Simulated assay, not measured.
Amino acid sequence: MSEPGTPGVSVVICAYTENRWEDVLAAVASVRAQSRPALETLLVVDHNRALLDRLGKEYKEAEDVRVLANAGPRGLSAGRNTGIAASRGEIVAFLDDDAVAERDWLKHFAEAYADPRVMAVGGRTEPVWASGRRPVWFPEEFDWVVGCTYRGLPRGRVRVRNVLGGNASFRRGAFDAAGGFATGIGRDGGRHPLGGEETELCIRLGRARPDAVLLIDDRAVIHHRVPEARERFRYFRARTYAEGLSKALVARSVGTEKGLESERRYTTRVLPGGVLRGLRDALLARPGGARRAGAIVAGVLTAAGGYVVGSVRARRGGVTFSVVDVGGGVPRDGGRGGAGG
């Protein structure tokens, strides 16, 4: 239950595979252990009947956990929209199904909403590497590849263009103003590990509510498990290429000026600094320096290639995407995009 005088927070966790069974249970347990209790936890299962039934039995007696089936098309965006539509809290927070939140996660989110202008608050996501430590070649500037906070993001509680979806919260009024997550953008079980759905929503929110304040508070921490397969360079290349496809679709939806605003600073300031650090480490005979510098260059080139391919597909008429009214569950806007699964 919420504390008197504070906004109720609903937590949405989207799950899709029984392979993450223990992770899902750990995610729910971390929400239940919050110093600032959640109003409810909604587990949204993405078109997996066996997992839906199993989780339904697991939490059958729980008053604070509800298990729901994704009411939309397959994918993370539709799953989140299902959770939003079913939630009762004034604030809706999102936690990845393979992450655990620190005890004060919701406390820091809720405090930021004391300012009525604040429409979204994100946090810091730390990687938990399956091998026990960061691969020596993996640059911190690319931690977004594994769904984590990356070098280059500002520290403290600061204003940002967009929050990152696996560790984020929104005021309900944000969805009333801008609609939900666009389906056709982001993870959908296809062969490309797409993303960008939270970026597109946040930019759309800024247009619908020019006075809206979006924040990241790096005290709101979660720990995100990185499986061994995602520690490999093969996944790194696939994810950076998919990010390029995703950015093309986001730019198609909201325009290149806003869609690539933060990315310009990232590619012109943050990444060159990372290359220089890697080369310096190589000169000092520190492990992996040259490989980190090379990975940054490879990541930029691969993402750029994905963006070009996505932009060409967009001009030819790519995948249809739609923005859902999470109150009524019907499309309120739509377009043609260039990234596909």
Rank of each mutant, 00 (worst) to 15 (best):
G294F: 02
D281T: 01
A238T: 01
D176S: 15
L201A: 11
V270K: 05
A229C: 00
R172T: 08
R269Q: 06
A182T: 13
I222R: 14
R191G: 00
F170C: 04
R171E: 14
A293W: 14
R161F: 13
K247V: 04
R187V: 04
R234N: 08
L214E: 08
S246N: 05
D217S: 01
S262I: 00
R291S: 10
G179F: 12
A208R: 12
P287V: 02
L276E: 01
P227L: 09
L215I: 08
G259I: 00
P210I: 03
A178E: 04
R151F: 08
R291Q: 12
V160F: 03
T267A: 01
H224D: 02
G179C: 14
I222T: 15
E200S: 12
G259N: 06
E263F: 09
R204C: 09
R234W: 09
N167F: 14
G180R: 09
L205H: 01
L215T: 08
T199H: 13
R159W: 00
A220Q: 08
R292S: 09
G273W: 01
L249F: 08
D281F: 02
A177K: 15
R277S: 11
Y235H: 14
G184A: 03
E243H: 04
E231N: 02
P193R: 03
G180Q: 11
A251N: 03
G294I: 07
S246Q: 09
E243S: 10
A168Y: 12
A174W: 08
H192V: 03
D188R: 11
V254D: 01
S169K: 08
H223V: 06
R157T: 15
R204F: 02
G186R: 05
A212G: 08
A220Y: 00
R234G: 13
L214H: 06
D217V: 02
P272L: 03
S262Q: 12
R277E: 13
G278S: 00
R172S: 09
L153H: 02
R280V: 13
I296K: 06
S169C: 11
S169D: 02
Y266D: 11
G179H: 11
T256I: 09
L284C: 09
D218H: 06
L164N: 07
G255M: 10
A177Y: 06
K258Q: 11
G184T: 04
T268S: 15
R232N: 06
R172Q: 13
E263L: 10
P210S: 01
L276C: 00
I203V: 12
A242M: 02
V275K: 00
P193Y: 02
G184Q: 10
G156K: 06
R277K: 13
E231L: 04
G289C: 13
T267I: 05
P154L: 05
D211P: 07
L279Y: 07
G186D: 05
F170I: 06
G289A: 14
E197F: 04
R230K: 14
R161D: 15
A285M: 06
